[in-house]
Amino acid sequence: MRKVGPGIARVATALAGGLAMVMVAASPAMADTSQSTASALQISLVGGGLASSGSASATNDGTTESISGNTNPPLAVLGGQSVITAGVLGQYVRAFNDGTSAACAGVLGSGGSITIGSGGNCTVSPGAEVSLNLGANGLATISLVADALYSSCTATSSPSATGTASLANARIVSTVAGVSTTLLTLPANPAPNTGLSVAGLLNLTLNAQSSSTTGQLSVTALNLSAIGGALASVTIGQSSCGPNAVAPPIPVIPLAGVPIALGLSALAATTGGGILLHRRRRAASRS
């Protein structure tokens, strides 16, 4: 009886390697999901009127980032309101493939800019001074004046989330006959949920932070409610990050294709085995 030739051994080895490759291809891969949202400015008027910059949002399924909304809306989106008439609205968002996300939102003076770097850091370049008209108190005009007012946050799929608020050179000012007086100076980097007020005029919450679950954080640079007048409230710089998570395993070969892959492997193995048996029978008949 003849021995099995080296060609048949090579076929068997190739089939075994092919089956191993199928099993490796069918093994799952992990993908971290991430998300964030941002809104620059919301203005509420007594009687129900609302002016809003809208919002931008980012999501990532572990492989592809999707961003929707306007990240740099013009002041025209606020309609005919008279609270802010010059400045820059920024609401930037990112959701990265590694399960991290970032958001940065707020109001700057004309010529200012907000960006989010590849590492999720919020970078702000203040422009000219920005002023928000909060209404009148007798002969005085009350304003919120600043170089920049914004919040930022980051989140990971570990899960964790952090956030901050920055109020650059911010203050509440009363102006009478062209002469301005500072009523309240706001801290540049306030602690979370800092409450301040101007007696009889305004209530403020700086760096307002809240969380719906572990790994999620919402940060608002400044919430302001007016006492009397036509203006009800102003909300500046809303950023939200997370929750991000490690997604369930995703097969490299889709589940629907695994039976096909395994079937092809089995067919290859059967065909190889048939060839081997046929060669042996021919060898036996010639003995």
Rank of each mutant, 00 (worst) to 15 (best):
A29Q: 13
A177L: 11
P126Q: 00
A208D: 11
Q42F: 05
A12H: 07
A245S: 08
A232G: 08
G274V: 01
L41H: 05
V24N: 12
L108I: 01
N244Q: 05
I114M: 12
T185A: 11
I114C: 10
A51R: 08
I84N: 04
P126I: 00
A103L: 02
T154D: 00
G127L: 08
A284K: 15
V77T: 14
G79T: 01
A9Y: 13
A191M: 04
V145L: 08
I172K: 11
A105T: 08
T13D: 10
G237W: 03
R94N: 13
T64W: 03
P243I: 01
A103F: 06
L206S: 02
V83D: 10
A76I: 03
N121D: 15
A245W: 05
I142F: 07
L277M: 12
P159L: 04
A56M: 09
S174W: 05
V130E: 02
L183I: 12
L196G: 09
L108D: 06
I172W: 14
A283H: 05
A51F: 14
V11Y: 07
S211F: 09
L231I: 04
L264V: 15
V83A: 12
T156A: 10
T64S: 15
G47Q: 09
V258M: 15
K3M: 01
L255C: 02
G120D: 14
G272E: 06
A140P: 08
V124E: 13
L108T: 00
A12R: 03
R280W: 07
G237E: 00
A31G: 13
S285V: 14
S101A: 15
F96P: 04
A161N: 04
S101N: 10
P243E: 11
A199R: 09
G200P: 14
S39Q: 06
A232R: 07
A269P: 02
A51T: 08
A29P: 05
D147T: 01
V145T: 14
G120L: 10
V198T: 15
P28D: 13
N207F: 00
S118W: 02
L108A: 06
A177M: 09
S285F: 11
G18W: 07
S287V: 06
C122Y: 12
Q216C: 03
G229W: 14
P126S: 02
G215D: 10
A208G: 07
A170N: 06
T37V: 05
Q42M: 04
G62M: 12
A102W: 13
A269Q: 04
A268T: 13
Q216D: 06
L19N: 14
Q35K: 15
A40G: 08
T141E: 11
A14E: 07
I250V: 11
I84Q: 04
I67H: 12
G47P: 00
S44W: 03
G90W: 09
S66P: 00
L139Y: 12
A283L: 01
T164F: 07
S265P: 01
Y92N: 10
A165G: 08
G273I: 03
G127M: 09
N193I: 02
T59R: 14
A191G: 11
A232L: 05
G80I: 04
R10N: 14
G272A: 09
G47V: 01
G195P: 12
N70F: 09
A102C: 13
L139N: 15
Q209C: 06
K3W: 03
A221L: 03
A161E: 00
M1P: 09
C241W: 09
V107D: 03
A20N: 06
A191E: 13
V93K: 04
T71W: 12
